[in-house]
Nucleic acid binder design. Structure first.
Lengths: 522, 522
DNA sequence: GTGTAGGCTCCAGGCCGACAA
DNA sequence: TTGTCGGCCTGGAGCCTACAC
């Protein structure tokens, strides 16, 4: 039988979010390094919430989740008849033989290939009290991420590097030169080197990438709204990743119908389950609604050690589309705290021990009606935020509520526009995490914008009782209304509604990297 | 049950190759027109040998062939275990409910979507003497196709239009202007209009496309060796198609393993067969090694009315990579005929009733040894041909035989280089065709270069007796050595060997649109 | 008849500071 | 601190003929 090639006996709490706090064992890092040189770049491109299980450990594979990935990638849900696979349970316990990181040659989209082998009954019994934890990959410490502006992507000029980012990540310039300049060489996921002229000039002085930048932009087909990511790693290499904004990146292959692909993943898993043979899955973190290969330990903890019940309150971490939207929301939350405490409104990001209370306010006792809205360029909304969310608004310009909507009409609008599902299904994978992590996230510069969100558990049942009975996939129904109402009450309404509209649509359309975490007993 | 929406009772002989000879019934053409506006452009891009079955008719579906398409598109054959599907026969008789033509939004690659429904036993009996024929699509009559040169694709200049092509296909210029010029608007498969300045100038005078051309080249990512296709249709519209050269066009999707896709197509077909439900397949004529959805009538004719036996000789039509290679081979054949008849060497393309004898010579009685080769830029090989095949040679420059090789070493080289499989498997779909079609092909300007080839049937057996017993898919083994030896004997050796090397590799790698036809009893 | 090279022109790509948010 | 604009320059895109095969 298979022998664990990564013996790992320490009981390490947490997963990705603690990556930078817990030093990873040499063996794991080295093994990983051999498989894919730029694993830190891969993880940075994939986002801070993506967690790959370790090769050699036992995992749980959710065919339902895999199916969701295919549906998201092909932009098509199955409508045709799907065969029944009695041998395929909703949770398939597997040995994870191999994990390799890849990036699409055309789009640079990151994905992972995993080789799984279903466990037989005896092996499943052995695995009931597992010791394996998720992969503790190195999250880069010296890096920055910037969402590209119109100026950055136009052919007219170069790339404006944020001052702190340049000083922190790039090698120092020789300021005796006039103007100070150097050549930077950055390596992408495909080990292709890109050369840029880094110059410090202008009035006021600023850092710019000029020569070489436009070649990179056109080669990677970057447009305003996409993000770039520079890492200065421990080998003193400059790494360079991109993250396309949420436009469709995976091209639908023209040689196989999406129905056949849906059936294919089920049939492949079912056959592997029936014969205990290996099978291969691709996990695409930027396209997949949720992780569908989970460390067994995490699954066991969530199912057997956490007692989720209706009425429970929780916080949830997920990515937003725009940094500025995140900043705006953080500002909102800070103001919320300020208004409650009579405080100055500054977010104390440097005090991680203040626990979650500032960002986890109690629900409002009374709601004002009717609400008054302010225009997009009216007071209370900075031009910066307006500009940042402008491209997002353009896509849904017809959906913007009128400035004089009442609370009822706002809610009606949300429902009509289809951006406001009152109830969402969450994957039942609960990250047990200490509350001080919260503050870390609000203060730090993440490669992707993240945001906490609040909710209440309103139901526990099967998502698809016919095809997938007794599945833990998205078995927890939650209500996220509360937080929205709260913000609407206290702070600038249109800003909050627009931000949340974006967040909600993001969640509804892809449900990306969404976790139930930090359950609060109400 | 389903009712044929295209009642079609006439016994029409032949298929695609006779398209331009037989007027197609109005109903078919109109129905097709509604489904896809540019059906003639689609067919022109797909190539002259591609024949789509008519919606509403009965067809035979070969899972093996479909599997080959997926293998070709993913560039990966299955190595993992494949489940057994007892309900899936090697030939699945189906009702074809729907055929729609598509083009990949990214690469412009043409493909067709078909909805199939397996026939039950009673329906299969009814279908045993079918009246349905293949789709008689309109092949464009007023068009031209050109393989792009380095000059055509460089940013330095425009597109040089072959004189006859411009005079035949483009609207006439006003020669009172100096220089004569006009604006052309051509529509591609996606109904996108492209504007070009068409000018007649230079010394000597020639037709050029200047302004607008480079935009088109970069938008379609065309490089030297790709082809463009202009059609002047009966509605006086100018249509514009492209055909990328044989570099990999279909990008491997990053969200599903190729194994799963292989299993997917089989499982989908098996499930449909078991439940008599509909399923969908995509047929990609430029990527698929062979057609895997065949009109039932053609199948019945091939299996029950044609008695293929070992030792039979046949001719086969397939596409070559380069027009000039085809022209070179036609020249070779013409010279062959000339040397045998004491003739002038001119190919009489205008005499379709001469039957196949000139292009179907008898085998040589004695072989000269040793053979002498001439250099690539030596006598006997025009610079034109050399230049045309140069990009092809570059890909396999290490494989070019030395100028002093003997016949034996040539054959050894072919085998070593892997471009010369002595025996090939042909799909057992035989086109019964009158011999005069041969001459038509040698004289006409096809959108794709085609070439006849000769061979002998050397075996009849299952290609994969384990997984697909009793299949007619590629059940005929043939030997193509004879023709090669013959050309080597009579004509310029290196030219022939290079041409045939290209042809053979083309066949081996994709086996594109390859038919057994015009069987000759030896 | 057509592919390629050389010459010439001119505009957009690209580098700069100004300025405002 | 940084996004965008106007100014300005230059290299290459793009139109032309010459010439060779």
């Amino acid at each position: 039988m298979f022998v664990l090639d990564v013996p790992f006996s320490g009981a390490v709490e947490g997963c990705c979010l603690l990556r930078s706090l817990v030093p990873s064992p040499e063996g794991v890092a080295l093994k990983l390094e051999k498989r894919c040189l730029n694993s830190e770049l891969w993880h940075a491109c994939a986002g801070p919430l993506v967690c790959l299980p370790t090769a050699g450990t036992r995992v749980v594979y959710f065919p339902q989740g895999h199916s969701e990935q295919v549906a998201a990638s092909t932009n098509k849900v199955v409508d045709g008849p799907i065969p029944n696979y009695p041998s395929l349970p909703p949770q398939l316990f597997c040995q994870l033989h191999n994990v390799t990181m890849h990036a699409d040659a055309d789009t640079d989209e990151v994905y992972a290939q995993m080789t799984l082998q279903p466990l037989n009954l005896q092996e499943q019994k052995d695995a009931y009290f597992p010791i394996e934890m998720g992969l503790l990959s190195k999250q880069p410490t010296n890096y920055f991420c910037k969402t590209l502006t119109a100026s950055d992507t136009s052919t007219h000029g170069g790339f404006s590097v944020p001052r702190r980012a340049a000083e922190k990540v790039f090698p120092p310039l020789d300021f005796s030169q006039q103007p100070p300049a150097q050549e930077l060489v950055a390596r992408d996921l495909h080990d292709v080197d890109w050369k840029f002229k880094h110059i410090y000039r202008g009035q006021p002085k600023r850092h710019l990438l000029t020569t070489g930048w436009s070649v990179f932009v056109s080669a990677k087909r970057l447009i305003a709204g996409d993000s770039v990511l520079f890492i200065w790693n421990e080998q003193n290499q400059l790494l360079l990743g991109i993250r396309h904004a949420n436009r469709p990146q995976t091209v639908m292959p023209s040689f196989l119908s999406s129905d056949s692909m849906h059936i294919g993943l089920l049939a492949a898993a079912a056959h592997a389950a029936a014969t205990n043979s290996r099978f291969t899955v691709f996990y695409n973190p930027r396209a997949s609604p949720s992780e569908f290969v989970i460390p067994l330990s995490k699954y066991v903890k969530a199912v057997f050690r956490t007692h989720v019940s209706i009425g429970m309150r929780f916080r949830m971490l997920f990515e937003t589309e725009e940094c500025s939207v995140r900043r705006a929301l953080v500002g909102v939350i800070a103001k919320v705290r300020a208004s409650r405490n009579g405080d100055s409104g500054e977010l104390r990001s440097s005090s991680p021990h203040q626990s979650g209370s500032p960002v986890c306010p109690s629900p409002p006792s009374n709601l004002p009606t009717p609400l008054s809205f302010r225009g997009l360029d009216g007071q209370g909304i900075s031009k910066k935020v307006t500009t940042a969310i402008h491209p997002l608004l353009q896509r849904s310009s017809s959906l913007i509520p009128t400035p004089s909507a009442t609370e009822d009409s706002l809610q009606t609008w949300f429902v009509k526009a289809g951006v406001f599902p009152r109830e969402l299904w969450c994957p039942f994978i609960i990250l047990q995490r200490k509350l001080q992590c919260v503050a870390l996230f609000f203060g730090s510069v993440l490669p992707y914008p993240c945001c906490w969100y609040m909710g209440t558990v309103t139901g526990i049942s099967d998502l698809d009782p016919v095809q997938w009975p007794n599945s833990h996939w998205r078995s927890v129904k939650v209500n996220l209304m509360l937080f929205l109402l709260f913000i609407i009450k206290i702070i600038d309404v249109l800003l909050a509604s627009i931000s949340l509209c974006i967040l909600m649509r993001r969640m509804r359309s892809t449900f990306m990297n969404c976790y139930l975490c930090s359950l609060l007993i109400s």
